[in-house]
């Protein structure tokens, strides 16, 4: 299983192994990573699982959908080029070693 590393807003690192096919948001909740709120549990309706994804993996995490992009314009922390809703990114082998930064506010 690939390993991904969450980095909280305070800089604390949590390296976890992640099951293929699940969303990054689900992994964060399952491993009790602080700062991923996910109010809507993966429906892309609440914009509270916003994370900053390692740009080196941009080609491997899939494209941003129109709806997701719209939600990202309304996140509590600023949208950046590497912003994604973590509920929309699926774990795959190619993501081994990726870091995911959690914003200060959801």
């Amino acid at each position: 299983m690939p390993t991904i590393t969450f980095i909280t807003a305070e800089g604390k690192e949590h390296a976890v192994t992640a099951e293929i096919g699940r969303s990054v948001m689900e992994i964060a909740l399952e491993k009790s990573i602080p700062g991923v709120v996910a109010e809507c549990n993966g429906s892309a309706a609440c914009a509270t699982c916003h994370c900053y994804f390692d740009p080196a993996y941009a080609d491997m995490i899939g494209a941003i959908g129109e709806h997701e992009s719209d939600m990202l314009d309304f996140t509590a922390s600023p949208r950046r080029p590497e912003s994604r809703l973590s509920c929309q990114v699926r774990i795959a082998d190619a993501l081994d070693g990726m870091t995911v930064r959690i914003p200060a506010m959801q």
Binding site: E39, N41, S43
Partner: peptide
Amino acid sequence: PKQPHLAFGAGPHFCAGAW
């Protein structure tokens, strides 16, 4: 302190009209 509330519910039925 800002923290989530449940006024819009949670999960798949999270309020569609929240925004």
